[in-house]
């Protein structure tokens, strides 16, 4: 009995030590996170100040640092686009705006600046069919969240349908509605998947021409300005098969950067 009592006391002591260790770990993590956030905020503020003082290369470097550190957020990409635009890099600016628009499709500022940059570059933004335009008007994250919500609501409605037969007159139509919403969300996610499979690409250099084949000596079909947005259909070596309006042809891979 005495031996058992000693063993029990040892276990309690061990649990307390473990609990304290966990608290210490959590506190360390909590202290570390604000440090990272503070760093991001400092970099963002420095880049914005550099932009205001017309030190555009520094502003670009600051926003690029944030983007490369996993902070590819609409605000960062939008400001990066502004810095590139001010610096005269139309292609980079349109790329950054387009990336920001992919994350925040309905942001009026992004839309306005992208349109302004496109107008400056003399390009027309790609037109989409009405259904695709509606689906792309919501970001992938929004569709996933919407789909997840529809999924769980459908789950609950089905559970109610199974578990509460008396309320099937409610749960059955609800299940149908949530299933339809889930399908809609899947369609939206599919549209974004399509954009990932055959992404848009921004022409980053001047005086590019879409050629009829993946050869430098192929027949030029269409001259494309810097900043033009094309659809990247396929890659063959150093060449990318592209689509711009009704023109299908090839561009050098080095001249294009995909919008991801």
């Amino acid at each position: 009995m005495i031996k058992r009592s000693q063993n029990s006391g040892f276990r309690i002591q061990k649990r307390i030590v473990r609990f304290l260790g966990l608290i210490l770990l959590a506190a360390t993590a909590a202290l570390a996170a604000p440090e990272g956030v503070a760093s991001y905020e400092r970099t963002f503020a420095d880049a914005a100040r550099a932009y205001d003082e017309n030190r555009l290369p520094e502003a670009i470097a600051g926003f690029e640092t944030l983007a490369n550190a996993g902070q590819r957020m609409p605000e960062v990409l939008f400001n990066l686009g502004n810095a590139y635009y001010r610096n005269g890099n139309l292609g980079q600016a349109i790329l950054a705006y387009r990336q920001a628009q992919r994350l925040a499709p309905r942001d009026p500022d992004v839309r306005a600046n992208l349109g302004f940059a496109a107008q400056s570059a003399g390009i027309e933004l790609p037109a989409r069919n009405p259904l695709a335009a509606i689906l792309i008007d919501f970001s992938r994250a929004e569709w996933l969240a919407f789909g997840s919500a529809a999924f769980w609501l459908l789950f609950l409605a089905l559970a109610a349908w199974i578990g509460a037969p008396r309320f099937r007159f409610v749960s059955r139509p609800l299940a149908a509605v949530f299933a339809a919403l889930l399908l809609l969300a899947l369609a939206g996610a599919w549209a974004h998947r399509d954009l990932r499979q055959t992404p848009e690409g921004v022409v980053m250099t001047r005086d590019q021409k879409i050629l009829s084949g993946p050869l430098a000596t192929a027949t030029p079909l269409l001259a494309v300005p810097e900043g033009a947005i094309v659809r990247m259909l396929d890659v063959r070596g150093n060449w990318v098969e592209t689509e711009l309006g009704e023109t299908h042809g090839w561009l050098p891979a080095a001249a294009l950067t995909p919008v991801r």
Partner: peptide, 19 residues
Amino acid sequence: SDIVYLKPAPAHWRNGGGL
């Protein structure tokens, strides 16, 4: 008659790769 000015810093920064 110009581009819209910079956006303010995000309200929340991503931590650990997000979703």
